[in-house]
Amino acid sequence: MSFPYEYIFKYIIIGDMGVGKSCLLHQFTENKFVPDSPHTIGVEFGTRIVDVNNKKIKLQIWDTAGQERFRAVTRSYYRGAAGALLVYDITRRITYNHLTTWLTDARNLTNPNTVIMLIGNKKDLEGQRDVTYEEASAFAKQNGLIFVESSAKTGENVEEAFLRTAKLIFQSVQEGNVDLIPDGGITKSNATNTNNTPNLGQEKKSDCAC
């Protein structure tokens, strides 16, 4: 008999405020879409077990706040991500224009093997499109990213985005490009790390000055 998962992959979802990061997470983990959901002020967290090449993999997804003022703080959550979903809103060019800074952060703060996926969200709002598929696709190609357009509202391509990233990470693991280190965002399931405990910062507890 199998057991639920063999690997844990850590994902982060980043991008401007209001591009639909939390909605993507909720659509993926709970198949639900909450219109007008409040802005994430902090970091939310969801998990789902998926199958990649017959291996069960637990995705541990960290959904970060998009506001500029939290940028410095959210950076601390990038560390050890195996996958980064870089999200923009196809109906708001400004969110697309900011991709370069997000990407710079992602590249600087994750390791070279981190799989970064570009997601153009709100595909359902075709009439208000502000960024063409071709343009974003070219940007992705230039920067070595995989790219997909999705809709957190209809669910279109949401599953695919997460699974495709997982597949590439897994491929990377199999090819030996990635070391399995506890802090590396890719963890082999075993007794020490089976629950979904985000433990960022907890090890620093003893240093609290206040």
Partner: peptide, 23 residues
């Protein structure tokens, strides 16, 4: 380290960069 030793690759400290993932 114990949880990494189950993987054959974990003992190689050198990691090669991932090839560009453009499909």
């Amino acid at each position: 380290m114990s949880d990494t030793t189950t993987n054959n690759n974990s003992n190689s400290s050198v990691t090669t960069p991932v090839t560009p993932l453009v499909l």
